[in-house]
Amino acid sequence: MTPDLLARLQSARAALQPVALLTRLSDGHQCLWPEDSAPGALAEAAETALRDDAARTVTLDGEAWFVHPQNPPLRLIVVGAVHVAQSLVPMALPLGFAVTVIDPRRAFATEERFTGVTLIGEWPDEAMAALRPDGRTAVVTLTHDPKLDDPALDVALKAPCFYIGALGSRRTHGKRVARLKEMGHGEAAIARIRAPIGLDIEAVTAPEIALSILAEIVAARRGAALARRVPAAEPATA
């Protein structure tokens, strides 16, 4: 790989630009799709590889090419700069997530409590709308406060996030479901929310809860067949 190509790969990553590195295995010739043009079949393979986020070797006119997708990092948006978030954030970074923490309460969202992540001190609805969550984004709400969690969930449910999780008991979630219905969300959309959040590993401490949340996020990302928790029932008197 030439230093020039390496620099282009790194600037594509910094600009959150999905690119595919194409390598001809016979001689190591390389190009970067779509910046460099590629013959139709190779461009198609690059597109597929980026969509599946999976590298593969393809043969074109008797030549083997390695098609290596370089997608922008996965994103994790955490609403609530709370105690669990302090455990969640440092565990999410080595898993490859670019992490953003949203909390308008100045005392919580401080650099001292959260290093190496983007902190946003705005209201979740505005902050979430600006972040434009996509199919490579996971959203976790941790505040327990409907004023903060609900607007974030409202935006998340309208976006193709691959994971939406909300901290709170079944009872809390039941009330939340009722509120989200009033906001106009249908049952199928609301069922996307993982609540109670996290895999059922009997987590007690903040780091244990963070671990169960991240394990559930990885499982969702990888399409693992996991038994989901029994969904929370809506309270009889909403």
Partner: peptide, 13 residues
């Protein structure tokens, strides 16, 4: 892909 990206960053440094 992030871990392989970190390898590239390390290689560059």
């Amino acid at each position: 892909m992030s871990d392989s990206e970190d390898v590239l960053a390390t290689a560059a440094s």
